[in-house]
């Protein structure tokens, strides 16, 4: 039993206050979720009236690999597989293109390439992730309906239904799919669907220090992606000639980027 004097002393010292702080519930959800995508948190999610866009600004990317690290941690992606990765493009004066992506950019780019003899004209980083095609080849080829385009425009995977035939992996023109060596089913970037449904930005957008990755709702006229897509800036999509109609746009992508 503690007498009043020592109790008051301990409270003032902070030893008891600290323990009370641990015991008292912080109220509500453990993760206080701020509203990063307006109009989703705490509201009925109307799946038929949603549209999202992702913009990658190549001119802002510094190749730090934060996005790759965040992605690996968010999903515990097995080593050697990448849901998102960063490629380094080097263009010589002879128009020769050199592309590399050691560990998918997970360790960042600490050293320049030493194997290029010619003078370098241009060099830049290109983050890659799922293009969320409106006409997705991976969905078309799935024999069991395990991958689909949800009414809100996400190309998602049904892991319970997938039989691991890897047909979609061959079909994807952007090589974003892989067969998970642990679960033996196809896996892909979902633009962090679980986060978006809670009003949070995808993990890679969350951690990007320069704002090279931008995500937002097209139904929200104040969102950055809405303003960019409405504005006059040149945006491109990858492999336009394939008619996949991606919802992932690139800003500042050179013609060599595929």
């Amino acid at each position: 039993m503690m007498d009043r004097r020592s109790f008051v002393k301990k409270v003032l010292n902070g030893t008891i206050a600290g323990s009370l702080y641990l015991v008292w519930p912080m109220g509500g959800d453990s993760l206080e979720i701020p509203e990063e995508i307006p109009g989703i948190k705490g509201k009925d999610y109307d799946i038929h009236h949603q549209e999202f866009a992702f913009i990658v600004d190549i001119t802002q990317c510094i190749g730090c690999g934060s996005c790759c690290v965040a992605d690996k941690r968010e999903y515990n992606v097995p080593d050697g597989n990448y849901r998102t990765w960063v490629e380094r493009y080097v263009k010589g004066f002879s128009d020769q293109i050199y592309v590399d992506s050691p560990h998918g950019g997970l360790d960042g780019y600490q050293h320049p390439r030493t194997d290029i003899d010619e003078k370098i004209r241009d060099t830049f980083f290109v983050p890659k992730l799922c293009n969320m095609c409106k006409e997705a080849p991976c969905v078309q080829v799935c024999p069991v309906g395990a991958t689909f385009i949800s009414p809100d425009g996400f190309v998602l995977m049904d892991e319970k239904r997938c039989v691991g035939c890897a047909y979609c992996i061959q079909a994807c023109p952007y090589s974003v799919r892989f067969l998970n060596p642990v679960t033996k089913v196809a896996e892909k970037c979902t633009w962090c669907y679980h986060r978006v449904r809670k009003g949070l930005l995808p993990a890679c957008v969350e951690v990007c220090p320069t704002g090279a990755r931008k995500f937002g709702s097209m139904k929200d006229e104040t969102s950055e992606v809405y303003k960019i897509l409405k504005g006059p800036g040149v945006l491109t999509v990858l492999r336009k000639e394939m008619g996949t109609f991606p919802a992932l746009y690139y800003k500042g992508a050179r013609r060599e980027v595929i």
Binding site: L31, P34, R73, E74, L156, D158, K160, H194, R195, A203
Partner: peptide, 11 residues
């Protein structure tokens, strides 16, 4: 089910 994947990154 895809929406119920646990969140690992906060803000």
């Amino acid at each position: 089910e895809a929406a119920l994947v646990p969140i690992r990154h906060g803000t």
